[in-house]
């Protein structure tokens, strides 16, 4: 079960979540979504402690967090 579920279609590559992830686990992926943006991607699920800061700052409800 994933800690972070990322709705790639909603992401607009604003990068705010990447800025605020305390463990620097988020990065823009290489692929492009239907809007032409590179959605955010979780680099290393293991290191994520579901602190939910990314979901907190996301302006587009891209990230759902599980713990």
């Amino acid at each position: 079960m994933k800690k972070l579920v990322i709705d790639v279609e909603r992401c607009k590559s604003c990068g705010i979540c990447i800025e605020h992830c305390p463990a620097g686990l988020l990065v823009l992926s290489r692929e492009i979504n239907s809007k032409g943006y590179r959605p955010v991607r979780m680099k290393d699920e293991e290191k994520c402690n579901s602190c939910l800061l990314c979901a907190l700052v996301c302006p587009d409800l891209v990230i759902t967090v599980y713990r």
């Binding site: 079960m1 800690k3 279609e9 909603r10 579901s50 939910l52 979901a55 907190l56 302006p59 587009d60 409800l61 990230i63 759902t64 967090v65 599980y66 713990r67």
Partner: peptide
């Protein structure tokens, strides 16, 4: 695993413009 940050009911599914 428990959902702790999900989608609020008071928002429709529609993506923001």
């Amino acid at each position: 695993m428990r959902l702790i940050k999900g989608y609020p009911v008071s928002l429709k599914e529609k993506e923001f413009h």
